[in-house]
Design a binder for these strands. Sequence first.
DNA 1: TATTTTAGCACAACCGATTGCAAATAGCTT
DNA 2: AAGCTATTTGCAATCGGTTGTGCTAAAATA
Lengths: 344, 344
Amino acid sequence: MMEEHRHVTIYDIAEKLNLATSTISRALKDHHTISDKTIKKVKQTAKEMGFVPNTLAAGLRGNKSRTIGILIPTVTQPFLSSLISGIEITAQKSEYSVLIMQSHDSYEMEVNLAKSLYSNRVSGVICSLAMETKDTSHFKQFSNNNIPLVFVDRVPRDYDTFRVVINNYLAGYKATKHLIEQGCKRIAHLTAGSEFGTLYNERKRGYMDALIEHELPVDEKLIINLKEMTYEDGVKACNQLFDLKIRPDGLFAPGDILAVSAVQTAKKRGIKIPEEFAVIGFNDDPISKIIEPNISTITHPAEKMGKAAAELIIKNLKSAKEEDAKEITFLNTQVLIRESSKRI
Amino acid sequence: MMEEHRHVTIYDIAEKLNLATSTISRALKDHHTISDKTIKKVKQTAKEMGFVPNTLAAGLRGNKSRTIGILIPTVTQPFLSSLISGIEITAQKSEYSVLIMQSHDSYEMEVNLAKSLYSNRVSGVICSLAMETKDTSHFKQFSNNNIPLVFVDRVPRDYDTFRVVINNYLAGYKATKHLIEQGCKRIAHLTAGSEFGTLYNERKRGYMDALIEHELPVDEKLIINLKEMTYEDGVKACNQLFDLKIRPDGLFAPGDILAVSAVQTAKKRGIKIPEEFAVIGFNDDPISKIIEPNISTITHPAEKMGKAAAELIIKNLKSAKEEDAKEITFLNTQVLIRESSKRI
DNA sequence: TATTTTAGCACAACCGATTGCAAATAGCTT
DNA sequence: AAGCTATTTGCAATCGGTTGTGCTAAAATA
């Protein structure tokens, strides 16, 4: 029965057992210089007294907190919450904690939160960049101080550090190729931003190359640049597409929400899916297999990516070789063919 | 230009300015005993040197870490990720960090993670209980040590601490009443567990009282107890309902996923919604307004609940009155009437 | 029995910010 | 110029583990 206030410390245990605190500390970690008898006695007493180690103290001493910091735009997107889940599960196994911060896609917040993570002396950082972020110098504080840094999904192009991503170019290519194989001739595409190397741009490149390779024209009218990747913007864009003199007969949407908006807009207009309009989305969000018709999509292995990122950090922390290769981890994606695009 | 390794500390600043570390510490927090001139000078130098305070050290000293611990079953459920979002946003405003742990509905993990949060000397804990949890004595360590504890949504019945919840009884009542008002006579219900006082049980009580109040019979065959609140279990249950000699003409599902499975199962059988079968769900998950027909639902203000919980902790930390009333915060829910139940 | 080795533990200095208290300097008053 | 108050700043202890170094006693070897 533990009581009020003052926490139990190794000093309390040391006093009770007439041992030095160093012995207690070592005994609790099964240090080889401590006899089994002492270890057993210490552990027993610690449990009895209700001792719980103070990670702050340990962290201060070692200047590391056994904490992984996550800096992402938001936690509510299915992809990102699954990413968190993957990280947390992996971290938990190695007794790491997970600190979460949301940038809400704001560059300014990202800068502040990065500082805050550093202030918390996190052992490592996993980040998916804010939409607004162009400059990534606020991450130098981690690199400079030997804090492993892993970017996931939305990664910077020009920063030499760990990256866990999918091959967006290839995914875009595969998605588009699938539509072509289903007989689509005029495939539309939604995208965002325009800088080279970004995730949406890569998908677009894959889309275009697939068209070119199959000798289909790339029609700028069929490529719509969205401000935001929301359901509403998707509806707007699709209406625009359907108003064209010659309607597209297929769509590669780089997100399932957009695919949903396309499917529903088409249905509302009486356009038959997939016969008149085939749709493929991206991410394999839960909704994609519930909506009717089910939406074909590209898998985006969120949990796996989280796991991979966390493992990179934990592994890197262990080995701590100064010059570990800052490799890029590519995870595979698959084309899931469902009703929305299956014509043959 | 900051460099390698050793972090900049207040000692470094003190040395550079020929001041005591105490002065630096105070200056950085605008302590009134430090002159404006010194404050300005210190802050300037701190910035130049790239000083970032070490929260571990501060936390150790004060035995509090400005961190809020979140202990929930999983982060991937929409309700819970929104909850996190609300907490994080609120915490961020007061410069708190957020530590997240997933119990995966396991009692054993919950116990371990609670200890881990305590080990991290979190300033407060926000918890939604694991499905398995019956005994809550592992939370005593927080109460005993003056660490504010707030339960959200899935709360214990017999623990005297802060609770942030909706009135599940009333919500169940309102949902059912709505169906009755739409002319339903045989309303089915899905539920889980059976102990008194749990969230699902409260909803069921509301459901039953609404029936009774409107002089409709409570038919046990129309109440199905699910193992898990999954889409698949929902489909199974609905098929069971539709196989009855006299089919129900309405359903109150205590979760939108279940409502979706009901809607889709009904459609597959050619049962018209809402004419032959009216459905109302719970939570207002994103999917409920996307699926066709749109699903009527009960709002479950996740972000608000997160905000409320975080505020309770932060407020409680400030005032620190030993005997603050451990009140229960009830947030309102609304009936959102959409296509799936609108008959008149 | 003398000597070397090894096991087992204690000492004390950290890690970096905070804070009560003492001390020093400055500013006013008479 | 002495006396006093108000303003600033410094000293040193503290939070609780961790860890390099050194000492002691027991075990192993000669």
